[in-house]
Design a protein around this nucleic acid. Structure first.
Lengths: 195, 195
DNA sequence: GTTAGCATGTAAGGAGTTACATGATTTT
DNA sequence: AAAATCATGTAACTCCTTACATGCTAAC
């Protein structure tokens, strides 16, 4: 497929990398790792699965050891093309990987990515957040001039949250460089082991 | 109009209450008070203005003291029906006023709303956030079982942000009850004065 | 006189949601 | 045997964005 994978498609490919899953369970996993609240709807997931199938990135599992009956659940597995597309998405560093939509997913899959890529994504995310902090300060100035008190309080809270998010990114970057430097011998971050 | 106002329509009516504005400036104000980043597009604003005009909630300012030329800027003012619709939206306490979409806007307009309504919206928002905190704890348990370390770190950060947001709501509720109790004589929150 | 910013709009499309429609399987 | 929950899908709709199309006005 020529068009770049959407966030949802990327997340689906990422989850299917470990284990073949069917739609219902896939949705649960997606809601677990991303979103947390405001659950993904089936009306969104199933068409996505269809698109990925049509694009040849995933395929129905035609289980050899399955009994011929109960064809009610349809499991999907990653094809070779899908694995390659996933690898490409994981390797990407750019707005898709550090803007709001993509950052959480890319971060969740960090265990599958080399330290250099992790750092670039964290750095990109940090820049974005710093930009926003500056923009928020601008907004706060204007809002204070207009004496729009409730709006000021709201944006001051937003500013604080942003500052904390930046601090968190800094922590993550420190943790990463600790791993890269080899200044620590203990295993810092594990990936998921199988199912 | 029978259908409830969308978030954008509500925000537009709210800004037009003080001063008549034209689209271009309106957009700037909207981006200032809400959004902060990811600016609203004209492709969204102008159709909204048209909808509100068709619904009779706003109308073009036909300035008496305007010179007949330069009809390039179209100012909009709130009609009586629009003012009533706005008042109704402001009075509303329910998911529209405390979910993510609506909360910021309702909070920004708090100066125009009675203390009782403010409290109910804050309480509703608090309940939502507490629900999410519980949901996040659930997710964290599952994620820890699966030893999905990066996802755990990400969700722990999300949990902390949520906890802070709840703390902030508590502060706002304290500030509100200080006003209501009359335990303070100084003016705590001003509204915008004119333009 | 040309660039930059002000100003208004439309058409097509993206990425999702809700509501609907259906049926199998497990639990009580 | 009824209720819950597992499971898959479609159709219509929402709300927004991007890209386009247009023209005025102020500054340099």
């Amino acid at each position: 497929m020529s068009t770049r994978a959407t966030t949802l498609e990327f997340a689906v490919l990422g989850l299917l990398h470990d284990v073949p899953l069917h739609g219902y369970v896939l949705r649960k996993r997606l809601n677990l790792m991303f979103g947390a609240f405001r659950a993904l709807s089936y009306g969104s997931l199933y068409p996505c699965l269809k698109r990925l199938t049509d694009a040849g990135l995933i395929a129905e599992v035609t289980g050899g050891h399955e009994h011929c009956t109960h064809r009610t659940r349809i499991e999907y597995r990653l094809t070779d093309a899908g694995a390659e597309s996933l690898a490409r998405s994981l390797r990407q560093t750019g707005p898709e990987s550090w803007d709001d939509d993509g950052f959480g997913i890319h971060f969740s899959f960090f265990a599958r990515v080399d330290a250099h890529t992790r750092m670039r994504i964290l750095a990109g995310r940090r820049t974005r957040l710093v930009e926003r902090l500056a923009a928020t300060d601008q907004v706060l100035n204007t809002l204070r001039e207009r004496a729009d008190d409730y709006a000021v309080v709201l944006h001051e809270h937003g500013r604080e949250s942003l500052a904390r998010d930046i601090g968190w990114i800094d922590e993550q970057m420190s943790a990463e460089s600790a791993v890269t430097d080899g200044t620590t011998t203990t295993e810092i971050r594990r990936s998921t082991d199988g199912n």
